[in-house]
């Protein structure tokens, strides 16, 4: 079985439901309060015979943390851009985030534009506009309600699929990691050795799993 690991960053204005979203996904939705700085979560999902491990940075939307954001999106492989369907401002803010990512992140990223709180009636963002914008930046578009648990799974699946597609399209992406836990040998019969020049932050992840930079299978 193969495992893919990627880093995901949740971005978006204060109160749009970023923490609720990840909380709902890992089964911890109750008592959210504003995020301080950023929180780190690990989550796993299966896609066919692939295991996907996501290391998620849930950032704080408060303006005062804005300047810290690069710390969290640097080296990210995917971004969930969350806005509140009932707050046009929060949608406009997404565009700011996308510009910032385009300027500061060199590697390609999987992007998902996510309109949350579809359960509320005071909608301010038109679905078509959202969809159109998402398409224009190569992102998937989702309208969800974390409250009613509608669409949450789909978002994470979309990210996982995106990561999978990204590694199979683009062989020089080394920041997404792929492990093969069923065999110590790749197709060529070469032993897979733990990569020597791992950055320190990667060492914590693999427990007894051999790790190598991406090679095509």
């Amino acid at each position: 079985m193969k495992t893919i690991e990627g880093k995901v960053v949740l971005l978006g204005s204060q109160g749009v439901g970023k923490t609720s979203l990840i909380g709902r996904y890992i089964g911890n939705f109750d008592n959210v309060s504003p995020t301080i700085g950023a929180s780190f979560f690990n989550c796993k999902l299966n896609l066919g015979d692939m295991k996907i491990k996501l290391h998620v940075w849930d950032t704080a939307g408060q303006e005062r943390f804005r300047s810290m954001a690069p710390m969290y999106y640097r080296n990210a492989n995917a971004a969930m851009l969350v806005f509140d369907l009932t707050q046009y401002n929060s949608f406009a803010a997404i565009k700011g985030w996308v510009k910032e990512l385009q300027q500061n992140v060199e590697d390609t990223m999987v992007l998902a534009v996510i309109g949350n709180k579809s359960d509320l009636h005071q909608r301010q963002v038109d679905g078509e506009e959202g969809q159109k914008y998402a398409t224009s930046i190569g992102a998937t578009y989702h309208e969800i309600s974390v409250l009613h648990n509608e669409g949450v799974e789909t978002v994470f699946l979309a990210i996982a699929k995106g990561l999978l597609r990204m590694v199979s399209d683009n062989t020089d992406i080394t920041s997404v990691k792929i492990f093969d836990s069923s065999s110590f040998f790749n197709g060529d019969g070469m032993p897979l050795l733990p990569s020597v020049e791992e950055s320190p932050q990667n060492t914590s992840i693999a427990h007894g799993i051999l790790e190598k930079p991406f090679t095509c299978c």
Partner: peptide, 8 residues
């Protein structure tokens, strides 16, 4: 919110 996850 500090209770539910590791924060930085």
């Amino acid at each position: 919110s500090l209770k539910t996850a590791e924060s930085w």
